[in-house]
């Protein structure tokens, strides 16, 4: 991205903020050095900005994490189920995973979702997540209402049910859409440690 584009983006951001517009397009940040997520073109993106009034779901995944890969169909299914009511984003927190690797991963696994790189773990911290796969749900006011496992398919490493019997992420999304309070705002996930990537 060239300097000129950055400058333009800066103006757009300030303008939008000042006027209080609810922008629905991803916004571009001002600085490459600041801890932000980027889309696969390298443009800084804050998935929580511009979607106020809508539930936001972040799915933290990793290309080489077998457990998050096995959840691809579940993630895709949930995003279709809540289309129009919740905005889904894939978030890749491994700085070693290039945009090309992520693009291929998205294609290979048939995701129809926007993907973000989060090499500086800005979204990881904001979402309080520790694992891939792990989900974070933000309500219409963009308060974090849930972070944790998608469902209970994995009890622990290698301890897998044949089918999930609880569906925490789906429950959290429905509660967020309906403006209800969840009994538990966090259920530990099983998978690959994000802290290994720091």
């Amino acid at each position: 991205m060239g300097r000129g584009t950055q400058t333009f983006a800066l103006r757009t951001l300030i303008f939008a903020t000042l006027l209080g517009f609810c922008l629905w397009v991803p916004l571009v940040s001002t600085s490459q050095g600041q801890a932000t997520a980027t889309n696969l073109s390298g443009v800084a993106v804050d998935p929580l900005k511009g979607t106020r009034g809508k539930v936001v779901v972040l799915l933290f995944v990793r290309t080489d994490c077998p457990i998050s890969n096995r959840y691809s169909t579940t993630i895709q299914h949930l995003s279709i189920q809540h289309v129009g009511k919740a905005a889904f984003w894939l978030v890749y927190p491994d700085r070693a995973e290039s945009a090309e690797m992520i693009h291929k991963h998205v294609q290979d696994f048939g995701y129809q979702l926007p993907a973000l790189r989060d090499p500086q773990h800005a979204l990881v911290r904001q979402s309080h997540v520790r694992i891939t796969p792990e989900a974070a749900v933000f309500d219409a006011d963009h308060r974090l209402v849930y972070h944790g496992r998608i469902d209970n398919l994995y009890q622990d490493f290698g301890r897998t049910r044949t089918v999930a019997t609880t569906h925490e992420l789906d429950d959290a999304i429905r509660a967020a859409i309906d403006g209800k309070t969840l009994q538990s705002d966090s259920v530990p996930a099983v998978g690959c440690y994000i802290s290994d990537l720091e």
Partner: peptide
Amino acid sequence: KTHARQIAAVTEK
């Protein structure tokens, strides 16, 4: 290194 804690967890279990 990028799987260190995972290595520790899965071997301990």
